[in-house]
Nucleic acid binder design. Structure first.
Lengths: 223, 223
DNA sequence: AGTATAGATGAACACCCGTTCGGTTGTCAA
DNA sequence: TTGACAACCGAACGGGTGTTCATCTATACT
């Protein structure tokens, strides 16, 4: 259960403005419009608070997209309900399943394959990421054990070729001809890939042979 | 009444794409996205046709505004109706979260505690179990590593005191004062508890000191 | 034939807009 | 005091995005 009162005054104002703006215009406002309407002078602060709201489950965002905002819950005190956006986001999403992920083969990515099935996920499992950017893979073999992932698990990813420190990423290591899921860190000129298992050692690779295929959003294991 | 057939093929495609895109993303597409989706190579042609559609009363535009488009009528053959029907059928369940599961403490079970939160799950994650019998626990500490479960994972369980061979169960071992998640097998007069990690050894316990608290239905890990 | 008009093309332009980064302030705990 | 952290600011960067323009083709009309 979301608690609207846990948010800061600014964040509540942002949500109300979002709802009003969408109701009036049919599309979301820009960061600068939000800042102007809520008395925030810097676009980075608006951005900062928007990310907080995503984290709290009130919004979802599409990165690098103009007006790439969606409300995912109804906002108390808003003038009208933005019906379409709320309905599209308040229920489950169907995420395309592009096949299986092996240690010994590259990751199937949406650009190269057709989906073979759909996986149903809740909005929380996408962490605010645009559903259109997400895809799913089934894990084959026990080679991902160091990532605490088992045969049969479903991995939900966001398709991307770069990553931030601390992200869990699916990478293809060209020199080893190996796909792996590990935590990503930049370490000087190299890349450190840290297994999720706390007792296992990280590996260090050259960025040139480490191609990122996606960021892991969540993992589902059904027994 | 507008006559949909008076429009050109391209213009009808634009309207259908508009509706699908808005339904999926919650905000309108850009001119270039429309062009790519409808096989128009030049942004100016999209612009041209959009103005035609405005003139015909199908759209309204906000000039010099990114994604400044709105549909003003419903489009025959759009996906909107189908999408809503699918979403309505695929409802989520709210499963109560009864707290955290430690290795060193008994499992919180619905009879003894009040839920502190709800977890949203898809029907598939309950595996056909009555939602009223399901509950959720948050994993604390890395003591469940032998079950391939990490700190922060959410475990969905069905409350029950017996189990079948092959079920993953949450058990309280009285003699060890320990809670654990393992695969359950009857082995003669004893109970065999097999860790999920394939390289770890099973333990054998006396049924008298092994109290089953629930059967694991699924596990969610959000990163 | 000559001409007007609708539709289309590709390129260029200029502003819009999300993102990032270095730095500041205030609060709270050690 | 010191350090860590959340919140905030201002500025700059670079790609996104609507707009405009010169040009071309095809059709219909005079």
């Amino acid at each position: 259960m979301k608690d609207f009162n846990k948010l800061s005054e600014r964040q509540r104002n942002i949500l109300r403005y979002m709802e009003d703006y969408v109701a009036e215009h049919g599309f979301p406002p820009t960061i600068r419009q939000i800042g102007e309407a809520t008395g925030i002078n810097s676009t980075s602060v608006v951005n900062y608070n928007l990310n907080k709201l995503v984290q709290a489950g009130y919004l979802s965002r599409s990165s690098h997209v103009a007006r790439g905002l969606r409300l995912v819950v109804e906002v108390p005190g808003g003038k009208k309900a933005a019906r379409l956006a709320v309905q599209a986001a308040a229920t489950n999403f169907q995420v395309p399943l592009y096949g299986s992920i092996f240690a010994s083969e590259p990751v199937p990515v949406p650009e190269d394959y057709y989906p073979e099935d759909n996986v149903e996920v809740t909005p929380a499992m996408l962490g605010g990421v645009d559903p259109a950017e997400a895809f799913a893979l089934r894990v084959k073999g026990d080679s991902m054990i160091d990532a605490m992932i088992r045969e049969g698990d479903i991995v939900i990813l966001r398709s991307q070729t770069t990553a931030n420190n601390g992200d869990m990423v699916a990478v293809w290591l060209e020199d080893r001809s190996e796909t792996t899921l590990k935590y990503f860190y930049r370490d000087g000129g190299r890349i450190k890939l840290q297994p999720a298992h706390p007792e296992m050692q990280p590996i260090y690779v050259d960025p040139a042979v480490c191609s990122i295929r996606g960021k892991v959003l969540s993992i589902i294991r059904q027994l």
